[in-house]
Computed example of a mutant assay.
Amino acid sequence: MTIYGSLANPVNKLIIPVVALGSLTLPTPSQLDLDTGSAGMIIDAQDVFPPDMVGTNGFVFPPGQNTLSYHGIVVTNVQATKGYDGSAETDYGNIGFATVKFGGRGELTTNVMPVLFVYKSLDGNGQPLQFPYQGVFGINSSSNPALAAGATSSTSLNICSLQSITANGCDFVSVLRYLNYSAGVNAGFSLGNATLDPNCAITSAMTGCTLQPALTVGLSVADEQTYTSVPLSCSKGPTASDLGVTACNANIRGFTISDSDSGESFKTPILFDSGTPIMKFSVPPDGDISAVVNSRQYGNGDAGRLPVHL
């Protein structure tokens, strides 16, 4: 599958185009942050819907309606927020459902899946945020909540569907879980070398950018045997509406991190996060150190290989 790599903006990104939702072919592809550090898809609603349907204050629902339909896209009246660990960003939107066609050449189309259609993004001070990209395409093995105002995350897995969605929101999982895979092919991906191009500007036209065949979707047993496997801590959704999906903590435990200045080392879980442009070590109050490692830190502007079996 073809994606872009950009080094031209304030944050360095791998970018995956979304070319259609439902039966709607977008006038220009929406360029989404390909994020191995989160699960689920958010997209700028104003790039999808006409201004009489949505604005900076949200969607407009006719009296008595709790859903909107537009070219095979269903938007519910459940407003929710989605945040990201290590970031003060909060995205506000409505939970909706659609098929999603994605890739630089529109190579793949999902089954109907949940999408957070975002109408505003705010920083930690409540100020509007603007990004060069139009959303986030989360593909890691975990689940991430889309929470309604005042709701708190539940310990039980409730994957978003029209049947399971509640007033409190629901849980998003990887976009890649909504594809059909051939017999003998597991739901997962491998991220190969992708050059981060300083001349590639993140715009709807991706001016100066070259598509790169860096993302492989679907892994055979033979593919997986070329890598070292690490078991993850997983939990399974309780109902048929949860697709029988197992959501797994994406932090890989047991890594040894060495500090070349002090000569000290410690063991810690790490998260390979293509959506975070810096390397961070986060120490919670309880002293249990966790790390968020951006793959671009390794190897002259190239993103390293990252195989994941969902």
Results as ranks from 00 to 15, higher is better:
residue 97 F to Y: 11
residue 302 D to C: 03
residue 151 A to S: 09
residue 297 Q to P: 08
residue 275 G to S: 00
residue 111 N to C: 12
residue 231 P to V: 14
residue 168 N to I: 08
residue 96 G to S: 01
residue 215 L to W: 00
residue 160 C to D: 12
residue 156 S to W: 11
residue 55 G to P: 09
residue 274 S to L: 10
residue 88 A to I: 04
residue 32 L to G: 09
residue 142 S to W: 06
residue 268 T to S: 15
residue 112 V to H: 04
residue 228 T to W: 12
residue 88 A to K: 13
residue 235 S to Y: 14
residue 290 S to H: 14
residue 104 G to P: 11
residue 216 T to P: 03
residue 125 N to I: 06
residue 291 A to E: 12
residue 208 G to R: 04
residue 98 A to E: 05
residue 275 G to H: 02
residue 7 L to C: 07
residue 214 A to F: 03
residue 122 L to V: 11
residue 167 A to R: 08
residue 143 S to D: 10
residue 25 T to W: 00
residue 137 F to G: 02
residue 31 Q to M: 11
residue 84 Y to E: 01
residue 34 L to S: 00
residue 204 S to K: 08
residue 83 G to K: 00
residue 47 D to S: 15
residue 182 S to T: 14
residue 192 G to W: 07
residue 257 I to C: 03
residue 39 A to L: 12
residue 165 I to K: 08
residue 58 G to W: 00
residue 21 L to V: 15
residue 67 T to G: 06
residue 93 G to Y: 03
residue 95 I to C: 07
residue 177 R to W: 10
residue 218 G to H: 08
residue 117 F to Q: 04
residue 79 Q to W: 06
residue 86 G to R: 04
residue 254 G to F: 13
residue 245 V to T: 13
residue 20 A to F: 12
residue 197 D to H: 12
residue 36 T to S: 13
residue 184 G to H: 03
residue 64 G to V: 00
residue 202 I to M: 10
residue 99 T to K: 03
residue 128 P to E: 07
residue 222 A to L: 02
residue 215 L to T: 00
residue 101 K to T: 14
residue 84 Y to W: 10
residue 275 G to E: 02
residue 167 A to Y: 10
residue 25 T to M: 03
residue 34 L to Y: 04
residue 17 P to N: 09
